[in-house]
Each structure stands twice: as C-alpha cells, then as structure tokens.
Design a protein around this nucleic acid. Structure first.
Length: 737
DNA sequence: CCGGGGTCCATTTTT
DNA sequence: TGGACCCCGG
C-alpha cells in the first residue's frame, strides 16, 4: 500500500519495526478483530500503532475513535505513546477507562435516567454507608445481612447489566435479606438518583439504559464511533460487553485485544466467556495471535507455556522467542515460611552482587498476609523494599473529609457529604440533631441541606444547634458563591481554612496529624491543575493515584494480581502450596473454573520474569496463628523438568516434589553456603548529604510510622516510635519528619 | 468522646 | 495470631 498523505509518513517508521503478526493486527482495520496478545508480545505497541495508523490514513477523525482500557495507567500510557507518534493529531480521541468514558457520556444525557449533569460519583465508602442506612430504615438486621454482602450483590447485578426490573426471577427469590434483596436494590438505586449520585457500576449501567431506551441516541452514538478499540478484553464484564456490542453494531469496526490466559478477575465480574466467544458474537471476526515474546528467556516461557497448557478453557497460543535459553527456573523447598523469607533475601543479595538493580526484582505473593514475613526479613537485613497496592491517596480519612467539603460546595444535595462533615470539626450537631434532620428530610422529601435550612426557622432542634447549622449553611453558600470566580485550588484552600478543618489537624497531637496536613496540602496542590471544581472531583473519584512516587532502589513486594502488566528481571514466586496456591477457598467456591483461574495466576506470575524465576514451597506455614503442615502446590509438578532446577533443604527427603523424583543440587547449595556473605551495608543506597540525625529529631519510617530519635549508634538509630514502641533502625530507612 | 475489652473474621482489587 | 469492629462504661 502506498500513501501519498504526509501524515502516513510520520508513522511509517513505526510500522516498519513490527513483526508480521503485529503488522497484521495494526493494518486489519475494518471489521471485528480479536488480537490475542500473549504476555510480553508488544501489545501496547500494537494498540497505539493501530490507532495512529487509522488516524494517519485519515480513516477517521480523532473524535470518531473510541479506545477503552481498564486502568488509568494503561490509558495514560497509550495517550503518551500516541502523542509521541503523532503530536497534536493524537488529541481529541475518546481514550480512557470504561468508567471515565462512561461518566463522560452519562453527563451528556444524565436527565434521561433522572440525574443532573453535575452528579456525584460515589466511592465504596459512600456506597456502604448508603446501604447501611437502607438496612436500618428497612429494619433488616445488619448482623445477619452485612451491608458489604448486599452491596456485593448489587454490584454483581450491575456487572451483569441488570437494573432492578431485570434481575432474573431466580435470583430475586434468594433468601438473602429475607428475600428482599431485589427490593433493596431498587431502593438503593432510587436513593442514588435522589442524591444525584452514581456509583461506579452506574457509570456504565445508566449508559446501557439510555442507549436502549433512546433509538435516536443509540444511532447517533453508533454513527459517531467509527472505530472502537478495547484493551484487556478478557477482563470485561457482561455490562461492558453489552455496551461495546451496542456501540459497535453499526460500523462493526471493533478491535479487542486481550489474553484469555491472563484472565484473573472473574471474582469481580470479568467474563472469560466474552473473549472465548468473540468469533460467535461477531461473525466474520479475524483472530490474530501475537506469540513472539520479547520479554522472557525460553526457559521461562517453557515453564509458563507448559503450565498453562493444562487449562481446558482457552483459545490456545504458544509463546516463542529467539533469545538465548537463559537460566532454568529455580525451584526451592524450605522448612517453614521464615526460612523462605530468609532464602529469598539471600537470593536477592546474590542477584544484587551479580549487578541486578533492586528495582528489577519483585516478590509476588498470592495473598497479602504472606507479605509480612518478607517485610520483617527485609527490615532485619536492611533491604529496601516497597509494597505495591496499599491504601490509595483518596481513601485516607482526611482526603475524604476534604473532598466531602468540596462535594457539598459543588452540589448541595450530596447528603453523604453533608453527613460526613457536618460535625467535623465539631459543631455541636450530634446524633439527636441528626435524627431530627433525617426525619424532616425523609418526611418532606428534602435533602439534608434543605432540611437544615428549614429547621433553623423552627424550634425542633436546640438553639445552639440551630445557630450552628445556620453558620454552616451560610459558609457553604458563601463557598459556592466563590466557586465561580476562584480557581479550584484557591477555593479548596479557602474552604479547608474557613471550615476549621485544617485547624482540626493542626490542633491534633497524634502522631499522624503532620502527615495528614501534608496530604491536605498535596490535595490542594493537585487541584491547581484543574479549571473547574467538577473536573477536579471527577479526577479524584476516577483517576487520582497514590501520592508519592519515589524512584529509589527497592525491591517490589505485591500480590500476583497487582503484578499483571508489569515485568522484572527477577521474579520470586513464594508460597506454592496446596490450599494457599491454588487457593482453597477459591476452589471450594468455584471448583474447576477456579483451578484454571489460579493456574492463569501462576502463568501471569511466571511471565513477569525476564531472566530469572524462583518458585518456592514451604513445609510449614503459620496461618491464622496456627502452624500448618503444607504440601507443595500441584502447579509445582506441572512445571517442565527440563526447564527447572530443583533445590531442597537438607533433611527434606525425596517425595518433596509431587509426582517427580527429587533431584538435589548440592553443588549450588554449597556455593550458597560458602560464598562470601555480602554486608548489608553494601546493599543499601548510599546515604545522602545532610541526612544526619540528632537526639530528639522527629522522623518517619515506612513500617513503624513516626517516632523520636532516642539514641545514635553509627548508622543505626534508637527510635521511640509513637505507635510501634522502641526500635533499632537503619538511618537510611527513615526520613526526617 | 475516648478507650478497653470482647467478638468475629481471615483471597484476589480497579474504578 | 492480629485486625477491624462494636458495645458499653467512665
């Protein structure tokens, strides 16, 4: 094909670098296409080049392109690469997460489902509180039917695209909440509308309702999106599938990229069936397999491929590479979990000695409780580490409070926000005033703000409470008045100041107060990038990331789930024991389907490694405080003999590995034992200038929190931590507070 | 409003 | 074993 258009020249070099399958995936532009992209096969590159190709060949304007991802990270990466390729042409396309695109579309037609365009997006915390209120109002025992359970059920229905009217009869009759679950779902949805709020599930569900009820809008939307691209298709749920199918019906230019072997989110609604059924769903679909792997060594790929080949429910593909064989995967058995942590630590030291950067090493566990022993060990040996996937920035109490102020300013009917902050800081509005407020609101169909407005003219609440409510309402309306003229950041600072919320933490003497003030500052700083309050609020609920990105040299510790999409030179996969991995509970709930998903999880884990893989098993593990005898995971026996190297601890005889003879490798064992012991000193990053601590200095430690220096001993500090007590810590593990 | 003490629970997590 | 949560007493 020859293009005369100058635009196409700009992406020509990008096309040249592709292999045959990748190129096919980029150039097969018309009709439904499923790109089965194995791990490490250049998926993102194909995705972005495909988009660029469509734009460069002028098949569509940017505004006619829809590209959906699951995470903001993926969306951002795609946008960045696209901008690199195309420059300004790459702007204006509909590229974002399912949720952000859903929100964007929903704001345009919110009134069709009874919302105003400025609706609030609720987080899990709000949802839960709402359900609790419902349960109380409906007189349902929360002990017996926890709000979590009900909310889980509602979300499950939403994942599958059910509105209250369409919940299948069989499920309506379940005995959950005494057979009233479906009725509660209806109430929940009504309550959300009344609050002018949508939860995450609604962002898509409402769009389905809109498109189904309005032929004109459906036709217009179908017309608009000439080309649709979906990333991580194996993770889509039913609602997302239905939405995509509706949108793609007219042009049928739907390209889904995914890997059935990496489908690990069924428990949150992902339907692996979506990807398995693609050909039936979209007749005439082309399936393109990306199988050339650019990440891992043949040994690692052989382990991953052999393992995953046992799964029945898969489309089938085999990764290959032209790289050197590399090291076999190391298989190690140990006596107990502390020893496992010790061994991992030793191997990391050894890798470090071989020149590997700590940031290129990861430990991937099945469950979070496994992390603790590694953390303890790493702290003891002075090995810097980072835990990926902790609590997020906007989940912190002070951030939620601050956002509640902003939400209430933005939208006075936001009862959840009102309730959260009406007495924070204390304003003397206690539970009795709130009761009256709720009663009035319910009786007269008002929001809490409106009810409060009414109550200050009567004597239904105490005079003190009336005055307090009045002051509060005046403040909020003043802030609202200034919202138009002030920049969001200035408004935010003003609100936090005038409301007394900042002062609340300034006067708080607890150890974490300074940190919280810091977070509030960070929040205000983040607002500076936004033009409108609404824009910022949407960013917070849909996009905002963990604060604090440090590029320090650390090993990464995370779950297998959060490792998807990442890669490291060396990957440790501890805890391969029956019951833990594959996980007993999963197996009990979902049987064989779960076993296959657990196996996919193992596959994801192995394929994160570029050069070195380490799998370990332990004979004894403490679970819930009880020591338990463990047997090696069946997955261990599913690894190919020719591509692994086994090491067993002395004293553990043959039979340690299921279904295979035991091959000890004493030479490497000896090498480990006699090798030079590297000083922890050499492992730690060099101290920075001006890092010296003095007696009485306040400091922060990532594990123990805030503390005060009580003693000095070279690079070790005696610290009295506020929460964790007295500890001896390495100085480069702490920051000045 | 706080904290002590009892109880219950204990995969995986993004938006 | 440890944490989250709730209830109740001061």
């Amino acid at each position: 094909m020859v293009y005369t258009d100058p635009m196409s020249d700009t992406i020509a070099p990008y096309l040249d670098g592709l292999n045959e399958a990748q190129r096919l995936a980029v150039e097969t532009v018309e009709g439904p296409v499923l790109v089965l992209a194995g791990a490490g096969t250049g998926k993102t590159r194909v995705l972005t080049t495909r988009l660029a190709h469509i734009l460069a060949t002028r098949r569509a304007f940017p505004s006619q392109l829809l590209a959906v991802t699951f995470t903001n990270k993926a969306a951002r990466e795609m946008q960045n690469r696209l901008t690199t390729m195309l420059g300004p042409t790459a702007e204006g396309l509909w590229l974002g997460t399912f949720h952000s695109i859903g929100a964007r579309l929903l704001r345009r037609h919110a009134e069709i489902v009874g919302l105003k365009p400025n609706f609030t997006i609720l987080d899990t915390d709000d949802q839960l509180r709402l359900v609790k209120q419902l349960l109380e109002a409906e007189d349902i025992d929360e002990k017996r039917w926890p709000a979590r359970l009900l909310l889980g059920l509602f979300e499950h229905w939403k994942d599958r695209g059910y509105v209250p009217d369409t919940v299948p009869e069989a499920e309506q009759k379940s005995d959950i909440a005494g057979g009233r679950a479906a009725a509660l779902y209806r109430l929940y949805q009504e309550r959300l509308i009344a609050l002018n709020a949508a939860d995450f599930g609604d962002l898509l569900l409402h769009n389905l309702t809109i498109l189904r009820s309005r032929q004109d809008l459906l036709a217009a939307t179908q017309q608009r999106f000439r080309f649709i691209l979906v990333d991580e298709y194996q993770d889509t749920n039913v609602a997302q599938y239905l939405w995509l199918r509706l949108l793609a019906q007219s042009h049928r230019n739907l390209c889904c990229v995914g890997d059935d072997d990496q489908s690990i989110y069924s428990w949150r609604g992902a339907e692996i069936g979506n990807i398995l059924r693609f050909e039936q769903d979209f007749p005439g679909a082309r399936i393109i397999r990306l199988e050339e792997n650019y990440r891992s060594t043949p040994n690692i790929l052989a382990c991953a491929s052999t393992l995953i080949a046992r799964n029945v429910g898969r489309l089938g593909k085999t990764l290959w590479t032209t790289r050197e064989a590399g090291q076999p995967l190391t298989l190690r058995s140990l006596w107990d979990s502390p020893q496992e942590a010790r061994w991992v630590g030793e191997e990391i030291e050894s890798l470090r000695r071989d020149g590997l950067a700590l940031s290129e090493i990861a430990i991937l566990v099945r469950t979070t409780f496994q992390m603790r022993e590694f953390e303890e060990r790493f702290i003891a040996m002075g090995l810097p580490y980072r835990v990926i996937g902790g609590p997020r920035f906007y989940e912190r109490q002070e951030i939620r409070d601050a956002i509640a102020y902003l939400r209430l300013t933005h939208q006075g009917d936001d009862d959840l926000a009102f309730e959260r902050i009406i007495n924070t800081p204390r304003r003397g509005i206690g539970s009795s005033s709130m009761k009256t407020l709720h009663a009035v609101a319910r009786a007269e169909g008002l929001s809490l703000s409106m009810a409060a407005e009414r109550l200050i003219t009567t004597d239904e609440v105490s005079a003190a409470a009336r005055r307090s409510l009045n002051d509060f309402l005046i403040s909020v309306s003043r802030w609202r008045g200034r919202a138009a003229s002030l920049k969001p950041a200035d408004l935010g600072a003003l609100i936090l100041d005038e409301s007394g919320y900042t002062r609340l933490w300034q006067e708080d003497k607890s150890a974490d107060a300074p940190g919280r003030l810091e977070n509030l500052k960070e929040l205000v700083a983040a607002m500076a990038e936004f033009e409108t309050l609404q824009g910022f609020l949407e960013h917070v609920s849909l996009v905002m990331e963990n604060a604090g990105t440090d590029n320090q040299e650390r090993v990464s510790l995370m779950t297998l789930h959060s490792a998807k999409g990442l890669e490291f030179d060396a990957v440790f996969l501890p805890g391969w024991e029956e019951g833990l991995f594959p996980n007993q509970r999963a197996l009990e709930e979902k049987g064989h389907a779960a076993l296959e998903e657990e196996r996919r999880l193992a596959y994801v884990g192995i394929t994160r490694a570029r050069k070195y893989g380490f799998v370990s098993t332990v004979a004894n593990r403490r679970i819930h405080g009880q020591w338990q005898a463990m047997t090696p995971s069946r997955f261990v026996g599913e690894l190919p003999e020719d591509h692994i190297r086994k090491k067993a601890e002395h004293g553990l005889g043959p039979g340690q590995w299921p279904g295979q003879p035991n091959i000890l490798d004493p030479s490497s064992q000896l090498r480990r034992l006699s090798g030079p012991v590297i000083a922890a000193e050499q492992l730690r990053p060099r101290r920075r200038e001006g890092d010296g601590f003095r007696l009485g200095d306040r400091l922060f430690h990532q594990k123990f929190g805030y503390g005060t220096v009580r003693g000095l001993d070279g690079n070790r500090l005696h610290v009295a931590f506020d929460k964790a007590g007295e500890k001896l810590v390495m100085d480069n593990f702490v920051e000045k507070a």
